[in-house]
Design a protein around this nucleic acid. Structure first.
Length: 410
RNA sequence: GGGCAGGUGGCGGAGUGGUCAAUCGCAACAGACUGUAAAUCUGUCGCCUUCGGGCUACGUAGGUUCGAACCCUACCCUGCCCA
């Protein structure tokens, strides 16, 4: 299921391969975010053309809209959105955190309450009340047809008192066990059904789906260690680190990773949830993280912020021999990338592509000035082109990361 | 020629005697965004400033008043209606 191909000697970075029901993916990898069954502004064919290998979708959002009946009717999210690659679904645990447990009470529709058995919440769409349990969230993810499922967790905010973090952690652990038990029971149940020749295909998918636990514990070392140790002993297919990049300093995040990651099983994939900026990603890869997801490339693209490589060492792959050598981004340098805001006045009359070395659809065909015009005119094409570009940057970053691990420079 | 309505900052449009450098929207300028309620949000937006404040401004020119974008007079301009 997960195999490590190269272990860096320079750092804890490793290159591997993660097998899922919808294909094997080289690690470390990045998950573009398709919260509601679409990477905003892109079609599934765009994702495929970009070379995205896996996407992340969200249990909470899909459950509310279009709802389980529709998802069942369509035979799951893969068919619904016509995406053949693997899908990881977040559990909705993050929504409990971001929608607030009362933090945004001004906007009265939202309402989240954590109780021992699960999470009560009101739909942001229509105010209707719902209840998630560790088990129901697994069931929903099965209906979605996720290749990788996440447990329902309690993501502590930042800052968070130790008492609260400990309480959140206790629930997270309890829920993790319940999710695992549900998954185990479900597999047995399906096996029984198989014996009677029923729903063999669905059974295969569910049996092949992976379940990941999530380490919490805020920024408290003993809690994080406790969490990592506790979850490592359980029979998860992979482990995630959650509750980071929620407002703490980068330094703090790196510190937490430094003592948490070594406690995770070496032979299981490690997923740092919600991270992050390129420098965060590289640091985390060096500390042994294999999987990342983040809204940054897509959200910032829609806001006109574009990621660019700095100082390309050479112009891109002029010959076949060069191509076989691999990519040439020096990601170990400090300022290896920069961000521009295409809406800035200075790009108004810029007739050149923002990066002639970039192979994305935007850079290959259009100028900076044109994209600015599309943004200012409110043309939807702006969102698509910008999103394509930023995702290309992030996917290239991971291509480079994998290459550098293999080469021994990371 | 007569009647009516109106002229406010880049634009639209509030204000109709003091707390108005003037609500608000747009545009402009910049910033933020980390398991997406985000094509969102924040700040700046007359000129100058040692950031206390100072200066010039609501069609033009006068006037009334302690004080005028706001009241009066004349003129200029715009729109609609009647001849």
């Amino acid at each position: 299921m997960f195999e490590i191909l190269h272990q860096s000697k320079k750092s804890s970075a490793r290159r591997g391969i993660l097998k899922t029901a919808h294909g094997a993916i080289p690690t470390p990898f990045f998950l573009p975010i398709a919260t509601k069954g679409s990477v905003k502004a892109l079609a599934s064919s765009d994702l495929k053309n970009l070379g995205a290998e896996i996407i992340l979708s969200n249990t909470y959002h899909l459950y509310l809209q279009p709802g389980l009946k529709v998802l069942k009717k369509f035979g799951g999210l893969h068919k619904f959105m016509n995406w053949q690659g693997p899908i990881l679904t977040d559990s909705g645990g993050y929504q409990v955190f971001s929608l607030g447990a009362g933090k945004r009470e001004k906007k009265d529709v939202s309402f989240v309450k954590i109780i021992k058995d699960g999470v009560k919440f009101k739909s942001f769409l229509d105010g209707s009340e719902h209840f998630f349990t560790p088990e129901s969230v697994q069931e929903i993810q099965d209906i979605i047809g996720a290749d990788i499922k996440m447990v329902l967790d309690v993501c502590s905010p930042h800052p968070c008192s130790k008492k609260q973090a400990a309480k959140d952690l206790e629930l997270t652990h309890e829920w993790a066990k319940r999710a695992l038990e549900y998954q185990r029971d479900k597999r047995y149940e399906i096996r029984d059904k198989n014996n009677k020749n029923r729903s063999a295909k669905l059974a295969g998918e569910i049996q092949n789906s992976l379940l990941f636990g999530i380490v919490q514990g805020s920024t408290y070392k003993d809690l994080r260690l406790k969490s990592a140790k506790f979850l490592s002993k359980l029979n998860f297919d992979g482990l995630a680190i959650g509750g980071l990049a929620v407002g703490e300093e980068n330094k703090k995040m790196y510190e937490v990773l430094k003592y948490t990651v070594p406690e995770l099983p070496k032979n299981k994939p490690r997923y740092l949830m919600g991270v992050g900026k390129p420098e965060n990603i590289i640091e985390a890869v060096k500390q042994g993280i294999d999987m990342f997801d983040c809204v940054i490339p897509t959200r910032e693209a829609r806001h006109g912020r574009l990621y660019l490589w700095c100082h390309p060492e050479r112009s891109p792959l002029r010959s076949r021999s060069e191509a076989s050598e691999g990519p040439h981004r020096n990601i170990t340098k400090k300022n290896f990338y920069k961000i521009i805001n295409i809406n800035n006045a200075k790009f108004k009359n810029n007739t050149k592509p923002i990066d002639k070395n970039c192979s994305c659809e935007f850079c290959q065909n259009y100028s900076a000035g044109y994209l600015q015009h599309l943004f200012k005119a409110g043309e939807p094409l702006a969102l698509r082109l910008a999103t394509l570009h930023n995702l290309k940057f992030f996917l290239d970053l991971f291509f480079q990361i994998r290459y550098d691990i293999k080469k021994g420079t990371l």
